[in-house]
Design a protein around this nucleic acid. Sequence first.
DNA 1: GTCTATAAGACGATAGAC
DNA 2: GTCTATCGTCTTATAGAC
Lengths: 208, 208
Amino acid sequence: MARTTGSIGKETEKRVLKEALTLFAHHGYAAVSMRQIAGKCGIQAGALYNYFPTKQSILHGLMKVHMLDLLAALDAQPLQHNPVMALEAFARFHIRYHIDKPEGVFVAYMELRNLEPEPYSEVMKLRQKYERFLRGILRDGQAKGDFKIDDVPVTTMAIISMMTGVNTWFRYGGRLSVEEIEKIYVNLVLSVVGLEPESLAPRLEGIV
Amino acid sequence: MARTTGSIGKETEKRVLKEALTLFAHHGYAAVSMRQIAGKCGIQAGALYNYFPTKQSILHGLMKVHMLDLLAALDAQPLQHNPVMALEAFARFHIRYHIDKPEGVFVAYMELRNLEPEPYSEVMKLRQKYERFLRGILRDGQAKGDFKIDDVPVTTMAIISMMTGVNTWFRYGGRLSVEEIEKIYVNLVLSVVGLEPESLAPRLEGIV
DNA sequence: GTCTATAAGACGATAGAC
DNA sequence: GTCTATCGTCTTATAGAC
């Protein structure tokens, strides 16, 4: 039986997404050309159009996949009914995921304005779903009297901004390990909702 | 005496910076053309080159001016020797300034990657100077035993990210006034360094 | 100081050979 | 599925008239 070329095509499509993600993250969507993407994939620009009808559709695909992956990973986390434990688990998840996929995070945030209206509102809905998860934890914790929060919606956005900011400075091989950073951010988040976090020092003895 | 056209030129230069800032903030540096900028200013593209030798120099000018203005405004603040008061004053300043100049903030952060090496390192030095100011407050407060901080450098970046995030969601005419938002963020920041912030409610009575 | 005109090339996207 | 070649348009930047 003649080997179909379909399998090669699938590989190429993945490659295109991977290389486009890296290029968009480094230079920005508008500054990257179809020729550059093709070059990184070892093909000619025309061949890209076998997989994506427009440059915009590559960006849309990347952002959609990133948000769906994020939500799926969140969904796969064990459910915590205690608000304090739920918040701690969410903080750990967010930091770990964001350190793990810096390019996807960067593009999903920075290139929102380059999405056309329909893809934009689709991606925004996914973002809001993620935000709603944290907001739910904060509301629950406030209702149960576990947290001290002035304003739940503002605190939701503040916590997400604070944690996502880890991508602006973290690089592997720096002063702190991922585990240490995770623990520091968990304490920061717990502090924000008025909890006295456990001291960091004894925990670190077990890790270092 | 014949009226020189110099005064008109200065006006045009300011206009160019103003319109370029708005366009860059909305669509991104790479997605905006010199023709678009000229169009918003009511002149032709060629005339832009009387003021700026390259498109890059417009971006560089915008970012440099933004960072210098920010540092000058910070410098004009009354000096606080008590770490708690200094941190509260810094938080208020940061929120107010960022709500006041959202376009400048947005461009100064998002377009860093579009700066060529030399302008980039110049702007980064100014950013770091701003970060160093907050880090100094945190170190001081920790040394004096006023703050409980696991890691000063990480907490510095976390606080700045948290506060700068206000620009991603704040719009005038929303549920909260600037004064209310300012107070909420001050409390968030104080919480992060382990301080029990005053309750929000009694304060608000005096404002609303 | 601003204009028109244009250079020199890159852009996204398409057509058709293989 | 990938190639080469190309269309039509847009880009930054410059030159020279006024």
